[in-house]
Simulated assay, not measured.
Amino acid sequence: MSIGSVMDQQGAGGPDPEERGRRRRGLRALAYGLIGLLVLVLLAAAGIVLVTQHLGSQVGRYPSVFAPIDPSSRPSDSAGQTFLLMGTDTRSPDPTTGTDAAPDAVFGSQRSDVIMVATIAGDGQSASVVSIPRDSWVDIPGHGRNKINAAYAFGGPPLLIQTVEQLSRVHVDHFAVIDFAGFAQMTDAVGGIDVSVGQQSERDGVVVPAGEQHLNGEQALVYVRDRENLPGGDFDRVKRQQAALRAFVQKALSSGTLSSPTSAYALVDTVTRHVGVDDSLTTTGMAQLAFGMRDLRNSAISFLTVPSTGTGTEGDQSVVYLDDTAGRDLWFAVNTDAVPEYVAAHPQEQLSDTPR
């Protein structure tokens, strides 16, 4: 029954015809307004879906990275979400074994320059990023002991995941890769990052002075790549990588970038064009993960490095020896969402405000 017919059936004692006409026009206007609002909501929802699909389609996908791994050899899954983050100096599809790759490396692969285990607690209120020095001397399944970054060259993502899971006993849910050039563009997308530089670095004419600095993408790239000029070598570079990541997250969370649709789109657009993930992480899954982290504060993210006992040589290789006992305590904390308590008991292991 139409709005008009309902009005026409009112008793003779009701409002006069002029009043009924005004009411009919008011009800029609309300109905049309509600229909218009519904259409706008549907159009907005469709736009969000299209934008999400577009951004998701830009993400590089690594197929079947978990398929070759024997499920019985893997650690038990936990309530949180754990990512194995790998950084390289190239995402080129061309063969990039390079001079540093192992002689029996898989054709077209390369060693990883950055290895981080990032875990989001089950309640979404805390997170941790644990760096594993690329020269860590570990057991690589099927290949004996070698530097951990050789695992990627030997067997790609599956073998690196196996190696990290065997070392940490932490279940890896997803695998992600970013190259250094991508990080530079991501830095520019948030308007630069603020870091406290412990020691000046210079590369290809780009200078990063010591002190409090606001770095653009090009400068950030120099900052995270340097190790030759740092007293601690690769140990200091690992800390710089963490400091840059911390500054990037802080800028994205605190500068209003994520609250502005235009800025948020520009950032996500840049990130999705420079990050590759395993194909089990769907676009919907990425959106759900981001939504679940909406209340995560930057101060609730702990940045740590796997404890080590020092460096040495194996053959002609310079390697890092990990502290198995201390490492077990750290990984247990990661597995049980107890990293904040671990940091409180081991404050010296947390990333400092001014790494070299």
Score class of each variant (00 low, 15 high):
F183G: 01
A176I: 14
K251V: 09
Q200D: 01
V206D: 08
T187S: 07
E212L: 13
A220S: 15
G217H: 10
G232S: 06
R237V: 13
D194F: 01
D194T: 11
R246T: 00
P231A: 14
S201R: 14
F183H: 02
A176C: 10
G211D: 08
E202F: 03
F180M: 15
G205A: 11
A247L: 09
Q185Y: 14
G232Y: 10
V224A: 04
F183R: 01
A181P: 00
A247V: 03
R246M: 00
I193T: 07
I178T: 11
Q185L: 08
I178W: 01
P209I: 04
A243Y: 01
E228Y: 15
F248G: 06
A189E: 12
A184P: 03
V222R: 07
A244Y: 06
V224E: 05
E218G: 01
Q241C: 01
V197F: 07
Q250H: 13
H214T: 13
F180L: 13
V195E: 05
R237F: 09
G211L: 04
V208K: 11
P209Q: 02
Y223P: 08
F183M: 03
R225S: 10
S196A: 12
G192H: 12
P209F: 00
D179W: 00
V206N: 12
N229I: 06
P209A: 08
L245T: 11
E202H: 03
Q200P: 10
T187A: 09
A210E: 10
S201C: 05
A220I: 01
F175E: 07
F248Q: 08
R225I: 04
D226E: 15
G198Y: 09
Q199K: 15
R240M: 08
F183S: 02
G217Q: 09
R203N: 14
Q242Y: 13
V249Q: 10
D179R: 01
A210G: 10
V177P: 00
V206G: 04
F180D: 00
S196F: 07
D173H: 14
Q185K: 15
A189I: 11
V208R: 09
D226F: 00
Q250F: 00
D194C: 04
D173R: 12
Q213A: 01
R246H: 10
E228S: 14
F248W: 15
V190G: 12
Q199V: 02
G182W: 04
Q200S: 15
L230N: 07
M186R: 10
G182H: 11
Q200F: 02
R240Y: 09
V249S: 02
V238N: 14
F180S: 03
R203L: 15
